[in-house]
Design a protein around this nucleic acid. Structure first.
Length: 306
DNA sequence: AAGACGAAAGTGGTTGA
DNA sequence: TCAACAACTTTCGTCTT
């Protein structure tokens, strides 16, 4: 990480120091802070015993990403340092401080606004705190990488939230994000893809099963139907019906079939609405499910009971 | 009359030359 | 950069309950 920057852009000196605790790289010659508010992302996977723990662990005081500067603000030059410098250097120092100030306040102002927006959307969707933190982290990274330039702040916020939801296995559909944030669906999708690619965040395609719980309660179906649909999903995955398809469509179809079998019929329209897909998609998935999983018998059984 | 079904044409995004 | 392509949607007509 430290080797990304080898020379000080201001004075050309190579005497850089990396303060891990402060999260910054600065030049020891002229005092310019080159990288600010960096975060050490590498992970130590093991902690051998409680003694080595303290030295391996990289977290210090609690740091939260939902505070706009994470409590890690940096300023160029303290009073004490200035007194040691001669006139010429002192001028330089003031210039640098002004410059740095401008940049950091711009970023911080942006972050402050963005995090307010993020909190608003997050509470609208009733997302857990962990997701909010995660998305704030993603957004902060995006800002530092300059990924927000040319994009609206709101859309990047929405994209970060979407990514964080996926990471925490509490997926919300793009439609829901879109409704909560007022950003167009495709715009969210676009920034989401862009941001995750640029930040190297890899995400598994979301699992249809993660949607089931929410859909079940939205349709007020029984717990049996829910577990039934999850079984159907498992079989569908074995039959390789799930790859390449939209996870919401699969989840919706599985739930629809399960409801049918358990005699809690919902119309395709109802299921389609809560899942955010069309009836047609449900029909297609539904048909595939019947073909591959031999569920016809079970459905007929229910029909006979009538 | 409402829901289920299927065909056909359109949309936005990915992929591979 | 463009064209082919897959998944999904929209729309609409027909069949079933």
């Amino acid at each position: 990480m430290a080797d990304l920057v080898k020379k000080c852009p201001e004075c050309g000196g190579q005497n850089l120091s990396w303060h891990r605790e402060k999260g910054e790289i600065s030049c020891k010659d002229c005092g310019l802070v080159i990288e600010d508010k960096m975060v050490d992302f590498t992970q130590e996977w093991r902690e051998f015993d409680s003694d080595s723990g303290d030295s391996k662990r990289r977290t210090g005081a609690p740091m939260t990403y939902t505070q706009f500067d994470q409590g890690l603000g940096t300023e160029v030059g303290q009073k004490g340092d200035l007194l040691k410098l001669g006139g010429k250097n002192r001028d330089k120092f003031f210039r640098l401080r002004k410059w740095q100030y401008r940049i950091s306040t711009a970023i911080e102002r942006n972050l402050k606004l963005a995090l307010a927006e993020l909190k608003r959307v997050s509470s609208y969707l009733k997302l857990p705190k962990s997701v909010e933190e995660e998305s704030a982290r993603i957004y902060t990274l995006a800002v530092q990488k300059g990924l927000v330039r040319g994009r609206s702040m709101e859309s990047v916020v929405a994209g970060a939230l979407y990514a964080a939801c996926r990471r925490h296995d509490v997926p919300r559909t793009l439609d829901e994000l879109s409704e909560a944030s007022g950003i167009e669906k495709k715009e969210i999708g676009r920034t989401y893809r862009f941001v995750t690619r640029e930040l190297g965040i890899t995400l598994l395609p979301s699992n249809p099963a993660d949607y089931i719980a929410r859909f079940t309660s939205a349709l007020r179906l029984s717990a049996e139907t829910q577990s039934r649909s999850i079984k159907i999903l498992e079989n569908a995955q074995k039959a390789e019906l799930t790859s390449g398809r939209g996870p919401t469509g699969i989840a919706a179809a599985a739930l629809y079939v399960a409801a049918l079998i358990n005699g809690e019929k919902r119309t395709q329209r109802e299921v389609a609405d809560v899942a955010g897909v069309t009836e047609v998609t449900i029909r297609n998935r539904y048909k595939e499910l019947l073909d591959e999983l031999k569920l016809e018998k079970e459905i007929k059984k229910v029909k006979k009971k009538k």
